[in-house]
Design a protein around this nucleic acid. Sequence first.
DNA 1: ACAGAAATGTAGCCAAAGCTAATATTTCCT
DNA 2: AGGAAATATTAGCTTTGGCTACATTTCTGT
Lengths: 142, 142
Amino acid sequence: MPTSPGSRHRRIRSDHATELAEDYVEAIAEIISQQGVCRGTDLAERFAVSHVTVNRTIGRLERDGYVKTEPYAPVELTTKGQRLASESSARHEIVLQFLVALGVPQASAAIDSEGIEHHCSEDTLRCMRKFIEQQDGAQNKK
Amino acid sequence: MPTSPGSRHRRIRSDHATELAEDYVEAIAEIISQQGVCRGTDLAERFAVSHVTVNRTIGRLERDGYVKTEPYAPVELTTKGQRLASESSARHEIVLQFLVALGVPQASAAIDSEGIEHHCSEDTLRCMRKFIEQQDGAQNKK
DNA sequence: ACAGAAATGTAGCCAAAGCTAATATTTCCT
DNA sequence: AGGAAATATTAGCTTTGGCTACATTTCTGT
């Protein structure tokens, strides 16, 4: 067995710890690119949580070096945050396209991809990319 | 847009709430089928977590009607727990087989499937099943 | 310019899921 | 039967991620 019995679960737990961070920085980057700035309210609406929860989550993100904030000012991403955001959104995009290519209806694919993206190893992402390309190729032949 | 902005995130959060329950009942069912009975220690080892944590999680599972416990006795599944366990393990199996069929190496597939299984809609599972069948068909033709 | 609306911040609460340490019970072996 | 080992429980701590209620700041429209 390549992995010890408990190690995989430890990984899943630590995945969970970074999931929110990934979702947040991804959302922040997206909102900034759409609206110029990202405020707490935008995030509260996006994640359907109270602004208080957003506030404290942002606090943790700042503590961990992903964002910079000033009181009563919009949220900004650090370099580290931007890196995580683009990695995260690239992964998200792959998973979404993959599900669609697999035949999953858009609506379900959109929802599922957000849950799945955090649990895909590089191996899995590579296979997804390959599958997408093959599907594209098949499309063009018709 | 088919879903409201926040609804999907609410779903993802409630998924999280049941993930542990699913993992536990699945593990309990498996351990019982392998060893006859399932004790707290088995679960602690399985999930790489202290036995105290197991104890309290089991308490929540009992509160929610998934398991029955007596002090110093092995854990047993209720009918509800058995149902969840078999649904959960069926889903797990589909995801695992799917990843393997997609070309993901066993080790990665095993790990990823445990994270992914909790985030697959019926739509996605259906497409995965179809893909597995097609692959099997292709194999047989050779 | 200023009043009210909107946004942000603070205090303090809750439950889940993790831990260690100490204690209790059961089981198993000699 | 007695003691060691295994198992279970309890107490008490931490972090995360939710919440409401209230206070403060900023923005906006007249």
